[in-house]
Design a protein around this nucleic acid. Structure first.
Lengths: 255, 255
DNA sequence: GCAATTCTTCCACTCAGTGGAAGTGCACGC
DNA sequence: GCGTGCACTTCCACTGAGTGGAAGAATTGC
């Protein structure tokens, strides 16, 4: 009876990864049944695999018994970002102290920006992005800063899709967005005015290493204070170039 | 010839986890051969599993082709620590701003402390611990703060082992250490004087939720400035209780 | 107390996974 | 140019680890 009709061609590894992938920012804690449903792994199989993952502390349980990503996975994750990110943090820190604004660092992942670090104060404007969060590129400052330095074919394919419009201010017309990106490229930084969230504006600058934007620094302020953004450009650019230069001298510097 | 003499009883999952476990703070980037050697997984098997992990961005490759923990794993890890840690960060930030000292947050994992967050300035004393780092409990401030609130049986078994002695100042005599812990418990905070690293002192306070130390906040200063530690106790305790209270009202508060 | 939901265990079948060995590719030295 | 060493990739026939439906246990809700 049992074991006969398995779904073929699915590796154990892919199931393990599907189980881990069931967790995301919107669903940080799940029951076993949730995990099975979201990952597409049969319940009994999920049960066994989850038990192994728990044993290794890749997953652990909340007080109420729900599953969460475990400490060991967090610890592993800390090894990921490499030199750039850990070197960037003090710079972000300093930018926060000198400007008093919420600052963050983001990289591109696929067609989205992934927020990899942020520094913020308790009294400042509440900020939407959280570390590890993802947002589309075109409505965000860091997204525009990164997109502007991607190769043409990439930008083209980005613009070719139907773009989300989180607010009425979001620029989604391909032509207008392309012109915006040209401006960003020309001046070296990007602004947004309520393009992602009503009430928030931002300035962002790419971190350029060998001409490629490996990350971007952003500052978010409430839109009432949008007029202060230009004032923030200088410290922003300083920070961006500081981070870029702090990264170890590029190995392939020459021609 | 092939496939016959496999090592039995090892699940695929355990191999995947062993491969991930091959990465640690001392070995953040590895070649495939390293991974196979460190994880005990045969090279050809490691090759296949690593390829699957790469496809999912659980692992990725450095410019020079060596393997690293990938972005997706970092992203997953961000979901791990739950409310406490993300709520703690602004408090740490503030403690750093008011004191100007290096501050960090640690939790107990097994017999070690795991540093889960830190805030530091560029000009301050260089700090040994890095996020995700592990240290033994008895020579560190946060370690003592955490150990002091563990149940008796745990402390007993901790003291029963032969304790490491990273510096001549490290307290490793069980009796003396037990007395030290009693003091910590009595006064609510811990000091260390060059017990982990020559040249560094620290003060630390536990974050108590329902009488259990769920984490600890620490401040590190250079030992020349050890006399300033007492002055730092008040802000430290404020921070610790602030973090503790900021966590959502405990569900099982009163019997 | 019964129904709904979630979690755990069972087990016979079978194909996904295995790993030693052979092949490929690259870098260096002579 | 050619051999030597090392790291990576592919191959393949065998087999037991993994499978998943279903039944049972535990828990929750009404």
């Amino acid at each position: 009876m049992a074991g006969g009709s398995r779904e073929p061609g699915r590796t154990v590894t892919s199931k393990v990864l599907a189980i881990l992938g069931a967790f995301d920012a919107a669903h940080p804690q799940l029951t076993l049944t949730d995990v099975a449903r979201r990952s597409g792994v049969p319940l009994s199989t999920a049960h066994r695999l989850v038990a192994e993952l728990e044993e290794w502390q890749a997953l652990s349980r909340d007080p109420d018994g729900r599953l969460r990503v475990g400490l060991r996975l967090w610890e592993l994750g800390q090894l990921a970002p490499g030199r750039l990110m850990s070197q960037a943090h003090p710079w972000l820190q300093e930018l926060f102290v000198t400007t008093g604004e919420n600052v963050h660092l983001a990289v591109r992942d696929g067609l989205e920006v992934l927020y990899v670090d942020k520094v913020y104060g308790r009294r400042a404007v509440p900020i939407v992005s959280r570390t590890g969060g993802r947002l589309p590129m075109h409505p965000t400052g860091v997204g525009k800063a990164l997109l502007a330095y991607e190769p043409d074919w990439f930008v083209k394919s980005y613009l070719a899709r139907k773009l989300e419009r989180p607010t009425p201010h979001t620029i989604i017309e391909p032509g207008r967005l392309a012109r915006e990106l040209a401006t960003v490229r020309a001046q070296g930084y990007a602004f947004t005015y309520e393009e992602m969230t009503l009430g928030s504006c931002s300035a962002a600058a790419p971190i350029l290493v060998d001409g490629r934007a490996v990350a971007a620094v952003g500052i978010v302020v409430s839109s009432r204070r949008a007029r202060e953004l230009p004032r923030l450009v200088d410290p922003l650019l300083n920070t961006a170039s500081g981070i870029a230069n702090a990264s170890p001298p590029s190995s392939g510097s020459g021609p």
